[in-house]
Design a protein around this nucleic acid. Sequence first.
DNA 1: CACCGTTACGGTATCCGTAAGGATT
DNA 2: AATCCTTACGGATACCGTAACGGTG
Lengths: 312, 312
Amino acid sequence: MKIKQLQYLLEIVRHDLVISDAAAALHTSQPGVSKEVRMLEEELGVVIFARNRSRLISVTTAGKRVLALAERILADAHKLRSVAVEDQESGGPLRVATTHTQGLYVLPKIIKTYLDTHRNVRLRLRQGTPAQIWQLLAAGEADIAISSGPKERVPEVAMFECGRLPRIVLTPPKHPLLLLSRITLKDIASFPLITYDEEFIGRSKVQSAFAAHGLAPDIVLSATDSDVIKAYVKLGLGVAIIAKAAFDSRRDRGLRAIEASHLFPPNSVYLGVRHEFPLPEYGLEFVDLVAPQLRNQVLRAGMSRGAAGSVR
Amino acid sequence: MKIKQLQYLLEIVRHDLVISDAAAALHTSQPGVSKEVRMLEEELGVVIFARNRSRLISVTTAGKRVLALAERILADAHKLRSVAVEDQESGGPLRVATTHTQGLYVLPKIIKTYLDTHRNVRLRLRQGTPAQIWQLLAAGEADIAISSGPKERVPEVAMFECGRLPRIVLTPPKHPLLLLSRITLKDIASFPLITYDEEFIGRSKVQSAFAAHGLAPDIVLSATDSDVIKAYVKLGLGVAIIAKAAFDSRRDRGLRAIEASHLFPPNSVYLGVRHEFPLPEYGLEFVDLVAPQLRNQVLRAGMSRGAAGSVR
DNA sequence: CACCGTTACGGTATCCGTAAGGATT
DNA sequence: AATCCTTACGGATACCGTAACGGTG
């Protein structure tokens, strides 16, 4: 069974059962049409047209059913051909604001998968500090924020926890800390410390942990960027406390990592959208890749007005 | 676009995006499947599968739409293939009781057209006198009656006038009546008469017409069958009054016809069905060919209980 | 290195147009 | 005689399997 044969059928009916006319309309030869029709009839085991040897008389009852199905198949085939043009309209811009760590170490795989399947989405990735990120979202200059939480509530946005980043201690090779089987906060506090900038939540959590044990670490340098921090650790200026996700043992050969999730609480990562700015379907599908369970909450948040307690 | 290509798509999805497996399931070569998919993508101008050069990763958003349509098309195609078997069940017996005149001179064309388009209907034609015909219908041994009316009402059936048969006078060649420009009843009455049997309505109408003019024709022979009547006219036994439809100038070369519709009222022909025995669709389609305007009345009559006055 | 998808190639079947035949109106 | 469907035939095209190639995990 070929689609062409079905086209022939309908064209014949459209021309009052005159094969010659149908062939002319189809820009092909009349014997070709005649033959294809007969072959289809033979394949289906059904007489579609009642013939008078030199003329088509009428459509059989079985033929009517065949024609009805053929019509729908061809309509679907037509829709199929226009998927391409609709596809052009199905994409659009998607602005994601995120931190350096997320943008460089967590999102790449997700974004690759996403762009593979969403050819017409123009993804714009904006990096910044958490404060900048939530500000961008609140101002409507980003559609999705992925970042640790802001220090102050931002009423315009809804946030949902979408992951937790455990901490590690980062040292140069052959550092004394590497010899300890289970390090303590006190061990760390005896070395100069390099960590995230003040406005990062991670920084304050680190400081609180030390303070809870009456310790006051010597923070010699802070930065907004894991890679900057790494560079200074590599130079031997101190040890760092960063997200585990930002360390790649293959790439960061000049560094060593020590598990520290027992010392510092993991840093929650939030996905945020703006109230009253519902994400398009392709935006929700991005959310699906970041945190599959969040789709419905994000959908509702985008449609509702701002309210307290959107963080579960 | 080919149906085969759509099959390939679904088979690939069904095998978790592994072309090799799909090809094996389709009993064909793997490169063939690969190529057809790419050609379809090119034709539609849409990337259906996200690829990793040596693997299919996922289905694009446009691809999902393509797959949805492909699925419906293939489902319809499958239905198409099974039209043949359903067609076997769509027919059935249709028993038509009718007179010799109708069966031999009026119905053949209709029946040919009908059987051309209703290959699976087993048409049984039963001939008889009007009394026999209506009796068959009332007894449920016929589904449709086509005949002149019965002498007595038959409560079980609904009748609808579906045609009128004007009369002619039938003579041998070179008969004296042929010389008259406009014949009268008196002219006819001067010759021996051959006509339908007593139980035919036509016979009594003819007799009434003569009686109304104080004439008493000499009916030398009567028969139930136009062809029997013709045979005796041909032998010179007398002239006949029969339905015009029963005379074919090409076939009846040994006979001559004289218009007589001004002398005798036309004989109404009725189509009848039994109350509470609704015709199947294919039966109604037979009625459509006999009398297109009757379909709905016949449909209703078949579903309702017997009642007076079904003849309009 | 095992697996998978793509590319290349050649034999074969299918398609499709022209020409001729036959039936009907 | 004109119209229309069918059959016949031959050249071009597309199909499809095998084999070789390239990338990936």
